[in-house]
Design a protein around this nucleic acid. Structure first.
Length: 569
RNA sequence: GUGCCUGUAGCUCAGUGGAUUAGAGCGCUUGUCUACGGAACAAGAAGUCGGGGGUUCGAAUCCCUCCAGGCACGCCA
């Protein structure tokens, strides 16, 4: 079944046509979409301002249109009442019986509760983190990881077969510098003469790693090249990275090495494809260079290979191969995305920091230029993380060894808090991560409020197991009161939130919904007791079904966010 | 300088055209409870939605302009 707002929109359309056929409304063209949204509970479950939108075309008062639509609304089991309200809203209330039936449907679905089929039979891939293995995972990269893994969980719930991928480059100047830095630290640990490169990596982790190497190999490596040390560093750092990410419940299916695109010559095939289609030229300067730029060209300057990206709306052409003969990052990146599409993924998400926006656009243009449709590639950009400690902004640099690692953060506040803290804001908003605040507020956190809802449900069932209450279904759910029914209505919002988070690439919607749901749960828990001498057994049994459903949904929600759903805290 | 993002309660942030009083968490004030885990519940104070102008039946939301912060404008990745 489609989501309720979609169903309701269809019903409203049918009602309009019926009203027109009956002569209660004049003929007019309907817009492509009519708004149906969640309503203030005082008004109903859903509301539609459709009549207000149609007033002009129909040349009738909005309230008259709404009244006519309400009168001709087709009867279905899930709609209880539809009424017109000034100035022309349609208020729709779900049928009570139908709402109560959903309690059993939720329980029956278990861990798959609210699973959807949007992506059924399709493959999706989420790429995130993708930091080169030059040091520990920092807080900045963590944001992309949390967002990416949540999107991956979400896509799986929508029916996609999902893979999580990490793209990296273990060649290049950065990695050479890493190798040389480790080499220096190794010689230092042996007490030999050493020189840390001027642009070298200064983090303590290389000193630690060097000590390990001495412990394992003594001085056997002292005459090895920097390449050997680069490999040693890379292997060790990747182990750390994977372990760190595992701590926040992230597991990658694939680590994709950029270098494989050279080994398979995929990079050069892309260049050839671009060339064949006429989007490549060789020149010292880009085609739209100004006279001023031309005047500054030094004699004997070598030509570079350019991508005519302006043919696809770019503001300037981009270099594919430098005058040194070495490709820029652009070329392998296009090859990488071609590779992803060739692997048969139907839906791709790239989680990137906003500083990579140009890169994302260039890749899309490159794919188009070689005849690929970039439509399946969805770019989820997130703003930066600024870390504060002691009221001061902490500037991060992996190379200088200035950073706060994910591990430190997890050690301070725990994995669930890290994930929720990051997830509970729009990717579009700058994230000020105040370390002191995170530490002191660890116990005053929404995370615990949400998880406590799950704990309380689990607690009830622990107690029930020791009581003499007969828990075998069925239970008479009609014994549930208003507060309980309102809560079930809130539970039923989750699939709509999931679809919104998916279509808008906005995983933070899950985090806010979780808090709202907990906010409705706890007051109910205070009032709606199960095990109490004054609660009749049949009422207690009905309430147990409610709490079983609540527990199921909280677990689903926490799992989607990559958080744990504890039974005790 | 140009483009993109951001500016909403003391703090951290939702909400980006729809329903008299603009929401949440934290913090603050005042209460509740010898019933399933109190990391709870209830009540309250707190906002010129950065400033100004415009469009609309209706604007935090769209348009213009100004102010403030971030990011991007490389033959770096």
């Amino acid at each position: 079944m489609d989501l309720l707002p979609i169903q309701l929109e269809i019903l409203i359309r049918q009602a309009i046509h019926a009203a027109q056929a009956a002569g209660d409304l004049p003929e007019f063209d309907l817009p492509e979409s009519l708004t149906v949204q969640r309503a203030d509970p005082a008004h109903g479950d859903y509301a539609s301002p459709a009549a207000l939108q149609l007033a002009k075309a129909a040349r009738r008062k909005p309230l008259d249109i709404a009244t006519a639509v309400a009168a001709h609304m087709p009867a279905v089991d899930y709609v209880g009442a539809i009424t017109a309200a000034p100035p022309g809203f349609l208020n729709i209330r779900l049928a009570d019986d139908w709402v109560l039936e959903q309690v059993e449907a939720i329980i029956a679905a278990r861990d798959d509760v609210f699973a959807l089929e949007i992506g059924a039979g399709q493959r999706a891939q989420v790429e995130c983190v993708s930091a080169n293995p030059t040091g520990p995972i920092t807080v900045g990269r963590t944001r992309g990881g949390v967002i990416g893994s949540t999107m991956a969980n979400l896509l799986a719930a929508l029916g996609y077969a999902v893979e999580l991928e990490y793209y990296f480059n273990n060649a290049g100047r950065q990695m050479q510098m890493l190798g040389r830095s480790l080499q220096a630290r190794y010689l230092e640990a042996l007490g030999l003469a050493f020189e840390l490169p001027a642009e070298g990596y200064q983090g303590d982790y290389l000193i630690e790693l060097a000590k390990q190497l001495v412990a394992e190999h003594a001085d056997a490596l002292k005459d090895e090249s920097w390449e050997r040390f680069k490999t040693l560093a890379e292997v060790a750092i990747f182990e750390w990275i994977e372990a760190s990410l595992n701590r926040i419940h992230m597991k990658f299916d694939e680590f994709f090495n950029e270098n494989s695109l050279y080994e398979s010559s995929a990079v050069w095939e892309v260049l050839e494809a671009l060339e064949q289609r006429g989007y490549v030229y060789r020149s010292v300067l880009h085609a739209a260079a100004t006279d001023e730029e031309r005047a500054q060209v030094k004699p004997g300057a070598k030509e570079a290979v350019w991508f005519r990206s302006t043919a696809f709306g770019d503001e300037k052409d981009r270099v594919l191969v430098k005058s040194t003969g070495e490709p820029t990052y652009v070329l392998p990146d296009i090859a990488y995305h071609k590779n992803k599409l060739d692997r048969g993924f139907h839906y791709l998400v790239n989680v990137l920091g906003t500083d990579h926006i140009i890169e994302a656009q260039t890749v899309a243009r490159g794919l188009e230029a070689i005849g690929y449709d970039p439509e399946p590639v969805h770019v989820l950009l997130h703003q930066f993380v600024t870390l504060f400690e002691g009221g001061e902004k902490r500037r991060m640099s992996t190379r200088k060894g200035e950073y706060v690692t994910l591990d430190e953060l997890v050690a301070d506040v725990g994995a669930d808090v890290v994930r929720y803290f990051i997830l509970a804001r729009s990717p579009n908003s700058h994230l000020d991560f105040d370390l002191d605040l995170a530490r002191t507020q660890a116990n005053e956190n929404p995370v615990y409020y949400i998880q406590n809802a799950h704990v309380r449900c689990a607690g009830i069932f622990r107690q029930v197991a020791e009581s003499d209450l007969d828990t075998t279904p069925p239970a008479d759910l009609s014994l549930l009161g208003e507060q309980e029914r309102a809560f079930v209505r809130k539970l039923l919002e989750l699939p709509e939130i999931m679809v919104q988070a998916y279509t808008e690439l906005a995983p933070h919607k899950l985090a806010f919904y979780a808090l709202e749901l907990a906010r409705e749960f706890h007051p109910m828990y205070e009032n709606v007791r199960v095990l109490h001498s004054e609660v009749p057994h049949d009422v207690a049994r009905a309430r147990l079904r409610l709490y079983a459903a609540a527990q199921m949904v909280f677990k689903r929600l926490l799992t989607l966010m990559g958080m744990s759903a504890p039974d005790v805290m």
